[in-house]
Every structure is written in C-alpha cells, then in structure tokens.
Design a protein around this nucleic acid. Structure first.
Lengths: 349, 349
DNA sequence: CACCTTGTAGAAAGCGCTTGCTACACCGGA
DNA sequence: TCCGGTGTAGCAAGCGCTTTCTACAAGGTG
C-alpha cells in the first residue's frame, strides 16, 4: 500500500491533523514537532494524495491553460510564459501548482470539453489563449461555462483573446486591428496599391480583427479593394503557400501580400519564390506576430511584434492573484511594427 | 452550493449509487432508469467532482506530458501528437482524460517536482519527452521516481528519450546517433573536410548522441577532428548565431557547419550571411529535426527528419494501453536524411 | 491563588464519490 | 408451490485528507 498521512503521523508520534498542518504550513506548530514530522515524511517517502486533499479542502492546485495549437510557437511561447508565472515548480514556496496545457486544436467542442474537465477538477484558475470562435451558440456556451467556473471560485483570464461579455473574466486582448492597420499603412506608404491578403480561418476573431485593420488602412488611404484580393485559409505555412498561388492566379499584378501570421507569410514567400518572383523587389510580404524564426527568413520578415511572453506572464500572474487585473478587467496589448527586409517599394509597373 | 451526486439522485428518485453507475457505465442499469438519471444530470447541470471521484476510485484521469521547452515546436509537435491520442476530448466515449503538458524548462529540479506533482495527483500515465539530463544523482532520482510511479500503477513512457535502466518504463528513442552520422557522412561525401559542430547543452543525452554520431562519421572517413571545431550552446537560434561567430573566429576556413538542431542552424545561417558568406557556396549548413520552418529557410535546410508526430502518437497510445509496447520495452525510431539546398560541394580552397 | 491568555495538539466530522455486498423482484423449471 | 437463477437497485463503508472545535499546559496578571 502507499503511505498515508496516518502512517506519517504514527511514525512521528503525532496526530494526522498535525501532519496535515505541518505540510500546509497554515497553522502554528512547534518547531520540534515540525522537525519530527518532516523527518517522518522523508523517511517514509510520503507523497500527499492530491485528490483527497483537493476533496477535503474543496480546492485544487490545478491551473488550466487552453491553447488552439500547441505545435504553433505562437501558443507555445504564451503557454510557456503563463506556466512560468503559475509557478508549478520553481514558484514561491508552498504554492506549488500544476499548470496544465490543454490543446483544443481550435475545435469549439474540445474547448468546451476541456473547460468541463477543468471544472470537474475544480481548477484554481483557467487561462484561455488565442482567438475565439465566432459562432453565437458556441460563444454563449463558453460564456456560460466561464461564468460557472467563476462562480465556483476559479479565476478566469483571457490572454490574446477578446473579452467575453457577461463574464467577469479578465481579458488581455491583443490589438490585432491596430497592428494590422499599421502594417498595411506601412505598405501603402511605400507606394503599394494592389495588396493581396491571406486571412486565417473565417470564424476566428483574430482573423476578423486583422482583416478589419487591413481594410481600415486601405480605406483611410482611399484605396479601393478588389474582393479577389482576399483569400481565407488556415494559420499554417501550407495554407500560405496555397493561398499565394491562388492570389497570383487571380491577379498576377499584386505587388504586396499581407499574411495572417508569420507562418503563413513563410509559405507565401516560398510560393512567390517558386513562381520566380523576388522579395521584395517584385512582391513585398508581411506577416504578423514576429515569431522567433521570422527574423531568419530571407529576406527577414516585416511583421507586427506581439509581446507574447509578456502578455502570457501577466496573464499568469493575474490568474494567480499576484497582480491586479487591469481596470474594468480589460486591457488591450499593442503590437509593434517591425519593418524588415521583406517589404520595399513596389516595382515600377 | 454546487450540485452533488446526491442531488441528482434525489431528482431522479434513485440512490446515489445508481447515479454513479450510470455516469461510469460500468454496471448494468435499466434503460428507463438511466434515462431518468441522465435527464436529471442535464437539468441540474451536474458536473462530477473530479477529486472526490479520484479519491474514491483510487485512480485519476490525468495524464502528464513533460517537455523541456514548450515554446520549441520540437516539443510542441510531440506534445500535440501525444495529447491527440490521449484523447482528452475527442477520444472514445467515457474515457475522457485530461492530458496535461508540463514545461520543465530543461531543469532537473522542475522535472522532479513535476513528477512528484503528478504522483500526487495519482496520474494515470506520464510521458517524458526529449533528451534527459546526464547527471548521475539526478538520473537516479528520476529513475527512483519513475519506479515509484510505476508501482503506483502509473504507466510511464519515454518519447524521444533514452531508456531509463532499472525502470520498466517503455522507451521510444530517437536514433540521434545514426541520424547525425548519416548527416555528417553526407557532408563528407560532398567533399567537406573542415566541419564545425555546434552542439547543444553539454549535459543533455541528445547532445552527446548527436555529437557521437558526427564524430563516428568523421572517424569512419578518416578525418581528423580539430577540437576547436566544436562549440557547445543551447538549442535555440541565438545560440547558433553566437556559436557560429565563435567558430569562424577560431577557424575561418571551415566549409561546413553542422548544428545541433534546426533552430541553431537558422542562427548559424544568419551569422554566416552577416559575415558575408554564401550558403552553400562558401559554407554548407545542416540542421537536425526537420521542423516545419526548415524547408522555408533560404536555402532550404539539409537536416534529419525525426518523425515527431508519429512517435508522439505512438507514445500516447502506449500510455493509454491501446498499443502494445515494443518488445523489450525499447524501440529505436530512425530519422531520415533530408538533403536540401543548404549543403553543397565545398568551395575549391 | 484563581483566572484568563496564548500556544499547541488531538478528536472527529465530514468532503463527494465508488463499490462490495445485500435485497428484492420476477422468471422459468421442477 | 418452491427454488435457484438473473437482472436491478440500495446500503453503507470507506477513500485520505482538512478543519472546526475542544483540550490542555504553560505563563502572565490582579
């Protein structure tokens, strides 16, 4: 059998209650007694029974982190930063929490199921990252879940995700619109007038916001947009590759391609190169996020840097109650335009 | 208050035991009764109390996945694949498990702490990914933990990690040595004789194995190695950048650089380019892993493809008991040499 | 010296669920 | 009619911990 609290108590010649108190450090215990207990714990190699403890205390030390795609560094970086603050190991004494990353794969059902699972585990906090799915019933279901979680005492934080109305979830949103607008404005400033846009999945808020920013910039500059210039895809490299070929087929005279994110931009570069076009002499390319590899693209990628790690860390701290939530529970995190080699003045047409 | 089993039982006019049995589906319950219970569950919006359930049943539905760096796609891809098989949501009915990814940051202490945390939660299975740290005391501590976990009924699987002796953990190892050897042999075949090697952190098994493979290839070709040609670093881009500068300083006549992994190789490319060298005309570069972005490097990266997703999926299935472990509990997974544009014949010196 | 603090430790009542065992119908066969 | 299945459901005993309440000793105070 495994060692229990009672075994430790017997060995240390104290009551189980005392052992529990020593372990939790939330009650005065005489130094000598504590010593004895700790020695017994050590000798017996005792490990607390998490479920039992959670049941009795009606709280758990689990913190859930939901991500759309764990293989995507965008989420990996945020998750890492969040987890770093949650502490898990390495955190401040006693407050050892198990930060768990759940991969929804962008599927609404999985998202809900994971939330239920976390609710079932009575998680201490939940952090949802990345764009939400814009499906009314699903959004409502998620909001209801979040409300229920909050009611049960779980702290809910959204990181890089739009606020959830009717929920007291704290939201740290990325200013996707603003970033996209600045990016496209940069391109327009260089003289581009025929810009292709490779969007992400239609139903994602991130997709919509970035596209809106792009269009706002066009509108502000008085550039009329051709509907053929927008293609929807996924947030991965291959999607960028395919979408670019499609874009070129529709209008070979495009002088710039704005991608939904850096991975997509990389795919776009590959497609352009294969079609014999030079970057940026023939076509400029821009991404979004500024993931680590973007600077190593050739030419290096013009993009919008999102402070993924910083935002994640902050979300983590808020989830742990170690930092005040922003006023109103909502904060917008701005991106920074990184102008690099992949964008330049358009070729004289 | 939250809804409990008893509330559901009252509502459905049955005993708590019956409700439990309906929910777990491990005992015959009359269809009509089941119906009634399920309706009550639905109406009350009941969510099982995980800790209580785990305590009573002495098992939990948690599965832990330990990774060295969650922001690194190498781990992200594996973790995603493992999680996909673990099921979490989307898995087969009833078997809903919470697959949790824990980020050790490559720190031995964190690794141990996470293992303890998982042991505390009475995890159903644990998958450790990536290279282990080669520190005798630490290795022993981990082995002891793994043994204890196994004793407690937790299935332990190592994925992309060398077998742990004296442990009945199933191991799916990557053939780093063989892959590295093939890679360097390729370079030697092209005519290179002066090859720089950028290794990972010294204490990692992965680092050692890849380096050994590299040296084995050199030895087999009768090429004498200069100690100055090896530099140790981290597994990230910046490390590759810095190490390359160091390598060039030590010996500007190198005609090829073999990197510990693709990220490092990317950093190496950047450094070479900045120093005015062309790839592969002046210097060939090779990576390892074949992460998604490697094919988009310019020129695209010669590397060794590791079947990350496949291995992860297999590890996940084994962890779930849905696939037989390999004979002897150990399987070696081979990499595949991907020859691409970043390697070529050396310049005529 | 009685009395109240203060500091420590134990007794015991759960926390919400699972499950072995028991109980009760109801059925067909003897 | 009696009896041994067979199919369902309930009882109740925990699972291993936390925490309230109580107990007691020691020390200070009037």
């Amino acid at each position: 059998m495994t060692v229990t609290l009672a075994d430790v108590a017997a060995r240390a010649q104290v009551s189980p209650a005392t052992v529990s108190r020593v372990l939790n450090g939330n009650y005065p215990v005489a130094a000598a007694t504590r010593e004895r207990v700790l020695r017994a714990v050590d000798e017996l190699d005792y490990v607390l029974n998490g479920p039992a403890s959670a049941l009795a205390a009606a709280t758990s030390d689990l913190v859930g982190i939901l991500v759309n795609d764990i293989a995507d560094p965008f989420f990996g970086i945020m998750a890492g930063a969040i987890q770093g603050e949650i502490g898990g190991p390495g955190g401040r004494a006693g407050g050892e929490r198990l930060a768990v990353v759940c991969n929804t794969g962008g599927s609404p059902e999985r998202e809900l199921t994971y939330l239920t699972l976390l609710q079932r585990q009575r998680a201490a906090a939940v952090v949802l990252t990345g764009g939400a799915v814009e499906d009314a019933p699903h959004a409502a279901a998620v909001a209801a879940k979040l409300r229920k979680l909050a009611d049960a005492g779980t702290r809910v934080v959204l990181c890089g995700r739009p606020p959830a109305p009717d929920t007291d979830a704290v939201a740290l949103t990325f200013d996707n619109r603003g970033g996209a607008r600045a990016l496209t404005a940069h391109l327009l400033g260089l003289g581009h007038r025929r810009l292709g846009y490779i969007a992400g999945p239609v139903e994602r808020t991130t997709t919509r916001h970035r596209l809106e920013g792009h269009r706002a910039a066009l509108a502000a500059a008085g550039v009329e947009e051709d509907p053929r210039w927008t293609v929807y895809g996924r947030y991965d490299r291959q999607s960028g590759y395919e979408a670019t070929l499609e874009l070129l087929r529709r209008d070979p005279s495009l002088t710039a391609i704005v991608a939904a994110n850096d991975s997509v931009a990389l795919g776009a570069c590959a497609a352009l190169r294969e079609s014999g076009r030079r970057i940026p002499e023939d076509v400029s390319v821009a991404g979004f996020d500024d993931l680590p590899f973007s600077i190593d693209a050739v030419p290096s990628l013009t993009t919008v840097r999102l402070p993924l790690a910083e935002a994640g860390a902050r979300a983590g701290r808020i989830a742990m109650g170690r930092e005040e939530p922003p006023p109103g529970g909502i904060a917008s995190v701005r991106g920074e335009l990184m102008v690099r080699g992949s964008t330049g003045v358009p070729r004289a047409s």
